[in-house]
Computed example of a mutant assay.
Amino acid sequence: MTADEDEPKGYASPPCLAPEIDPTYFDPLAVNSTQALDVARWRKAARARLLADRAALSVSVRQDAVERIAPHLEAVIAARFGQMRGLTVSAWWPIKAELNLRHWLTDLVARGVTVALPVVLIPGTPLVFRPWTPDCKMVQGFWKIPVPADGPEVVPDVALAPVVGWDAAGFRLGYGGGYFDRTLAALDPPAFAIGVGLYAAQVPTIFPQPHDIVMDMIVTETGPQVGPKGAISPR
């Protein structure tokens, strides 16, 4: 993903004013080119700060967060679908100090869940998903991220996405490439979308734009933070 894809091209803009915008009055459907560029600049700065904060955490701290997140994910998915067995759950191969869920994913495979990883077939188009198991052959994919070498394309029932940042309205701040939003918009039938990240990565708002898709749930190490389509859940 290119970190600059958030940013509209071909416009001039004054210095970024996004931090001064009151989130209460921000209208994502009324953006203009100047406002969109200001938001893109704010997101780039926020993304860099949040990635640096996450990278500064020790491996043990991040792994402790994973161990606390996994049962919350199980509870949220079970509440939505009734059981795990038979579901297809897409996740990610961890990069850039992302939370590493592979131990939990391995356990899911053993319990009859199809775990899938995203694959870029054509840059700039929606992702596809291929089944993953701990012993499947992996190859270097786009951005040099390992992906399953082959296998059928599957449609996830549950789509897990790592968040760089998140807000209480249920929007996630990603890496800026827009791949996950395009993919969610294209999935048929739609997936139950869960953003997964650290509680400390919450921001007041990501200043959502028309292309941003709200998550069905945000889950952190403290539990579900945002309920279906932005309804706040108790911690």
Rank of each mutant, 00 (worst) to 15 (best):
T2S: 15
A3D: 14
E5K: 14
K9F: 14
A12C: 06
S13Y: 15
P15E: 09
T24G: 01
F26Q: 11
N32A: 11
S33K: 06
A36C: 01
R41A: 08
W42C: 00
A46E: 11
A48N: 04
L50S: 03
D53S: 04
V59R: 10
S60Y: 05
V61Y: 05
Q63K: 07
A65W: 07
A65H: 13
A78K: 14
A78V: 14
A79S: 13
A79D: 15
M84K: 12
I95K: 13
L99C: 00
N100I: 10
N100C: 03
N100H: 11
L101G: 06
L105M: 13
G112H: 00
A116S: 09
L121I: 10
V128D: 02
V128L: 11
C136W: 09
M138D: 09
V147K: 05
A149E: 15
P156T: 06
V158E: 07
L160K: 03
P162V: 00
P162I: 00
P162M: 04
A169G: 10
G170F: 04
T183G: 06
A185C: 11
L187M: 13
A191E: 12
V196P: 03
Y199Q: 00
T205L: 07
I206Q: 05
P208I: 06
Q209E: 13
H211T: 09
D212I: 14
I213H: 09
V214S: 05
M215N: 05
M215D: 01
I218F: 14
E221F: 07
G223R: 05
G227Q: 07
P228A: 05
I232Y: 02
P234T: 04
